[in-house]
């Protein structure tokens, strides 16, 4: 890919806006269209684009699969943890009302945190899947078939 200078320059230019857009979708998910699922995918796309242009190894230097797996788990934990916190505060599971002094604020906080968890998980799972396909390092080698 070294000689595809146009692709490299353009992608370098594109990646920051993509991430920014992903973050926008993420943080406006509570009252506008969007949310963790979409944001996660868009966010992952930025890194996948990077990997396509610069190679998977480069991407894995930033985000090793181990970290991605952990992030996927952490995302779920953030989601479920919110539910547990509301439970501990005396509401039902995922009953956000108690998260702030005002139920409306509570709902907002709750959604944002939950969506964050979703977003992290989706992004890291997307990237994991991409790496799994892109790396020629499957758990079962071709010769073994």
């Amino acid at each position: 890919m070294k000689h595809h200078s146009i692709l490299r320059v353009v992608s370098k230019l594109l990646i920051p806006p993509i991430i920014l857009y992903a973050l926008y979708v993420q943080w406006h998910g509570d009252y506008g269209p969007g949310g963790g699922f979409q944001a996660g995918v868009v966010f992952a796309v930025a890194f996948i684009l990077y990997a396509l242009v610069y190679g998977v190894d480069e991407m894995m230097r930033i985000l090793p699969p181990r970290l991605l797996h952990a992030l996927a788990g952490i995302g779920v934990l953030i989601y479920a943890g919110t539910g547990v916190v509301t439970m501990l505060l005396g509401e039902n599971f995922l009953g956000y009302n108690v998260l702030a002094h005002d139920p409306k604020h509570g709902q907002e906080w709750g959604i944002i945190v939950v969506e964050l968890g979703v977003g992290i998980t989706v992004a890291s799972v997307m990237m994991s899947i991409f790496i799994a396909f892109a790396c020629h390092n499957p758990p079962i080698k071709d010769e073994e078939w």
Partner: peptide, 13 residues
């Protein structure tokens, strides 16, 4: 449901 659900990612980690 939540206990095994939360436990699953922890287990992976």
């Amino acid at each position: 449901v939540v206990v095994p659900l939360v436990a699953a990612p922890v287990c992976a980690m």
